[in-house]
């Protein structure tokens, strides 16, 4: 079901980089690519992403599993675009009433689908190799995030798998007390909503108790916190971010040189 452990070889050269650097690199890479609507730059970017995958210790199969919903969305993009493209220039390929497919539409669709993939993959790769504790530590130590908020969020994140089990428990408790939906879809929906609500209530109660336990151990006592796990942000981490910027920029440049570049705005 829901798994919160990182799922990549932690020793891989890029997986070992500072989590903040990894997230920053992914964001830089993604946002540079958001700037264009052509198919060439994202295609190049995807090639780069697939090429660096082994350096992150992520297997291709894993990426495919995490990215498949994206492919499904790509189909949606295609359908929507065929119906609602702003730009219908180019040769007419198919004209069936409201559906007017031109070469221009197809190029745009290809561009959008590739862009979607190219923009999402860096984040998927980076988060698959990042441990939540390390991320929180690095956010505090290297990105000047307020410690109380980062650690509080981290403590709450630990509850994710417990919430999954809780869902099961709540459902069983209702059944044991004679509450079920049978085959009626409306009753099913109501039971779903009431279970989700109970889950939220339970989560808040847990959170309240957790906060008390944290206070009991001196969280927020007013003394400056020390750090047990040092996160370093070194030259290699800067290099990772710079590398991401350079590679994404290179993909754009190639696209500009080939004359395919289409800026997002303008």
């Amino acid at each position: 079901m829901i798994d919160i452990e990182p799922i990549a070889a932690p020793g891989a050269p890029l997986a070992r980089r500072n989590p903040v650097a990894k997230v920053a690199a992914a964001l830089v890479f993604s946002f540079v690519l958001l700037a264009t609507l052509d198919p060439v730059a994202p295609a190049l970017a995807i090639a780069v992403e697939l090429a660096v995958l082994p350096l992150f210790g992520v297997r291709y199969r894993l990426l495919a599993r995490r990215a498949w919903p994206l492919l499904a969305s790509a189909v949606g993009v295609l359908v929507t675009l065929v119906l609602f493209a702003a730009d219908r220039s180019g040769r007419v390929l198919l004209d069936a009433g409201p559906v007017l497919v031109t070469s221009g539409v197809l190029v745009t669709a290809l561009g959008l689908v590739l862009r979607l993939l190219a923009v999402a993959l860096p984040g998927i790769i980076v988060f698959a190799t990042t441990d939540a504790t390390d991320l929180a530590d690095a956010l505090v130590q290297n990105a000047k995030a307020p410690a109380r908020f980062a650690i509080g969020a981290l403590a709450a994140f630990r509850l994710v798998p417990l919430l999954g089990q809780e869902w099961q428990m709540i459902s069983m408790a209702r059944r044991a007390r004679g509450v079920d939906a049978g085959r009626n879809p409306v009753a099913k929906l109501r039971l779903f909503v009431s279970t989700a609500f109970a889950l939220l209530v339970g989560a808040i109660r847990r959170g309240t108790r957790l906060a008390v336990a944290m206070d009991a151990r001196g969280f927020d006592a007013g003394v400056p916190r020390s750090v047990a796990r040092r996160q370093r942000f070194g030259a290699a981490d800067w290099a990772l971010i710079a590398g991401a910027a350079v590679l994404a920029g290179a993909a754009l440049t190639v696209s500009v040189l080939l004359g395919t570049f289409r800026p997002l705005i303008g």
Binding site: A132, R158, L210, A213, R217, G218, S226, V227, A228, R229
Partner: peptide, 20 residues
């Protein structure tokens, strides 16, 4: 509900960090 961190060592260290 009184364990805070995801790894055992980190959990024991949590209180020590808070005390600086």
């Amino acid at each position: 509900s009184q364990l805070v961190m995801a790894r055992c060592g980190d959990d024991v260290a949590f209180g020590l960090e808070n005390r600086g």
